[in-house]
Design a binder for these strands. Sequence first.
DNA 1: TTGTTAAACTGGTATGACCAGTTGACCATC
DNA 2: GATGGTCAACTGGTCATACCAGTTTAACAA
Lengths: 259, 259
Amino acid sequence: MRLKPVARKSLSDAVFEQLSQEIVHGRMRPGTPLPSERALCDVLRVNRGAVREALKRLSQAGLIAIQHGGGTRVLDFKQTASLDLLNRLLFHHDGTVDLRVARSVMEMRAAMAPDIARLAALRRSPGQVLQLDEVVAAMAAQEHDLLALQVLALQFWDLLTVCSENIAYQLAFNGLRHSYEGMREALVEVMGEELRDLAAYRRIAEAVRRRDGEGAGQSAQALMQHGSRGILQLLAALETSTDQQEEGEEDEDDDDPRT
Amino acid sequence: MRLKPVARKSLSDAVFEQLSQEIVHGRMRPGTPLPSERALCDVLRVNRGAVREALKRLSQAGLIAIQHGGGTRVLDFKQTASLDLLNRLLFHHDGTVDLRVARSVMEMRAAMAPDIARLAALRRSPGQVLQLDEVVAAMAAQEHDLLALQVLALQFWDLLTVCSENIAYQLAFNGLRHSYEGMREALVEVMGEELRDLAAYRRIAEAVRRRDGEGAGQSAQALMQHGSRGILQLLAALETSTDQQEEGEEDEDDDDPRT
DNA sequence: TTGTTAAACTGGTATGACCAGTTGACCATC
DNA sequence: GATGGTCAACTGGTCATACCAGTTTAACAA
């Protein structure tokens, strides 16, 4: 019996959700003025407090700009939002994963991971080496349970970012992890190869132990290539298969440049 | 006469500011229960709506967890917050820059920039090449105005991230830019050398024009080293100079508990 | 043209009430 | 002793109604 906590959403959460979807999926172009708070209350049938809480959050997320007395307008989230928004961008309305966004996540991951490993090797404490060993040992023990491996791999990288003593990496990792967990189930086959490459994880841990920054970075880079290759293939396959179904769905500003 | 828009803060902004500072700067440890909303109203002398708006934002930022009926408690922001928080972490209470955080930003920047340049070279459109040329030309024209160069450099990187067609990089760049602009004035001497290396920017733009991903990446990596070297020197100088003033300020938990 | 004024917006703050979920102490039951 | 029910006292969530404060517009005066 697999039970999980029931989802509970407050009104302001629902309002936030609804408005952010409208903005992110392009139904409200940047510059568009939002209805006034009182008008939103009428439309959404909620009290003004709920609307204001949602608007404040949208403002913090960089999706809208609120001006006392002067109305509220939609911003261009690509220029003002930050990494938090990835979770929302990762899924279409129908719940399927946006592979373009997924590719972005994988590319960023591939760029950061080697540097995280490098810094971790240079700055790790003795105790952290032991913790890494424990995680790698646990991975070896659960070699055939992909789901468990995925959790352990996340733990592995979490540890490395802590070792790196780089707060920017830690925070970025938190954000990426949320996105990552969202598409985890959808991409098990893509990540399977990477997760099973226990030797690579071991090489990283070993390099960290000997304070070999370059070695750790190279091993991490090699490990990342599994997932990167997988997502690229998936993307290529999907693009050729959907080109005939829906052509020109995205505003493709003349991208034939790859001749 | 240099005038700028006057800062205007709403009550909920002030409450958010105050509570987030308390949490981020460690006066409220993770797990600590927050006073109830009504109690906060009494202490802060504001109405409950203002408090609730602030709490909702803190929750979204990953600093607290709110539970209907069950109270509100402080989270460990290093595990739950995302990149937005960098702006707040970058400064101590007294307004001086936290160089450890600044170093983190520079390291992340150095890891991402080469990959951004690489992808930009592979995916840029013809029009974007022209835009890059314009920015580089503008930089050449303002070669002696460091402040103008800084703005143009940001514009240069903004363009590259757009060229890279990687939404994760774009969003991360937005967040980093905020942090970056915060310490801009404090770090002009650190960045001066990098900003004046016009030849490097030109090399990147050229590589992007010829779709030379590797070349663009290498040029970007070389460019980043200016700033990285600068911040490292600054940090080393400052650490040796303050070691006698305040020793052991950081909680160095020599973690070898698993012996 | 310029500056003033007033009305009609907008968002911001305040209050008091009530709804809804959680907690813990108490107590009956088994 | 463990289980489950009840109730009171919390907690956060929702609501309606004021009124304050800043912006925009247009009419109007100098």
